Simulated assay, not measured.
Amino acid sequence: MSAPAVRLDRVPVLADLIPGARVRDVILTLAGTAFITVAGYIAIPLPFTPVPLSLATFAVLLTGAALGPLRGGLSAGIYLAIGLVGVPLFANGSSGWAFSSFGYIVGYVLAALLVGILARHRSDRTVWSTLGLAVLGSLTIYACGVPWLAAFLGVDLVTALTLGAVPFLIGDAIKIVAMSALLPATWRVVDRARR
């Protein structure tokens, strides 16, 4: 006899543990957008690349994992949409689409969705699976950002990687390690509280 299939919409992410339904979802989605926005403002321009060092990638990955694919993806999508219409909420007060790091912001939406889906598969419960979740989310952001950077600057892909990925690898490693400690620790606390 085979085990019953587990529906992904029944595997909780952290946000599902908060009581409520639609109102909760709206509030959490908007809070996710606010978190990404605030983290995006924490940006350091680097003299050797047009892409700023920002905490937004950490916020996107954490939002996707904590809120799940729908709420997390919507949080990043609202951030993208508000910036596209001209509100200066991207790093360094940018808005619109005609700047070098816009591709990374498109990648935020896809990364939040992917990380949320992986969290629905319980990939945010252990250190090793969370490491994988965060690495895949980061690679998704780069997969959108680096080609956009190459096209925007009119450079080859190797130059774009040198400008738009290599300088950020150490920072990304720190963010990934932080996530892989934070999420499983939060789940341990939640599991203890439920007992």
Score class of each variant (00 low, 15 high):
3 A>N: 04
5 A>N: 11
11 V>S: 11
11 V>H: 09
13 V>D: 05
15 A>S: 15
17 L>I: 03
19 P>M: 05
19 P>D: 09
23 V>R: 03
26 V>P: 03
27 I>Y: 09
28 L>F: 09
30 L>W: 00
31 A>I: 00
31 A>E: 00
36 I>L: 09
38 V>R: 08
40 G>L: 11
42 I>T: 12
43 A>N: 07
46 L>V: 00
49 T>S: 07
53 L>K: 11
56 A>D: 15
56 A>E: 15
58 F>W: 14
60 V>L: 12
64 G>L: 06
68 G>C: 13
71 R>F: 06
71 R>W: 04
78 I>L: 15
80 L>C: 14
83 G>Q: 04
83 G>K: 05
86 G>A: 10
89 L>H: 14
91 A>M: 05
91 A>N: 02
95 S>T: 12
95 S>K: 07
96 G>H: 01
97 W>R: 13
97 W>T: 12
103 G>Q: 06
103 G>H: 10
104 Y>N: 04
116 G>P: 02
117 I>V: 14
119 A>W: 07
120 R>P: 06
120 R>W: 03
124 D>T: 03
124 D>I: 02
125 R>E: 14
127 V>Q: 04
129 S>R: 15
130 T>N: 02
135 V>D: 10
138 S>V: 13
139 L>C: 03
141 I>V: 05
142 Y>I: 02
142 Y>Q: 12
143 A>G: 13
144 C>N: 14
145 G>R: 12
146 V>C: 15
155 V>M: 10
156 D>L: 12
157 L>F: 15
158 V>L: 10
164 G>W: 00
167 P>R: 00
168 F>A: 08
168 F>P: 05
170 I>R: 07
173 A>M: 14
175 K>E: 06
177 V>G: 11
180 S>I: 02
182 L>C: 07
183 L>S: 12
183 L>Q: 11
188 R>T: 15
194 R>F: 07
195 R>M: 03
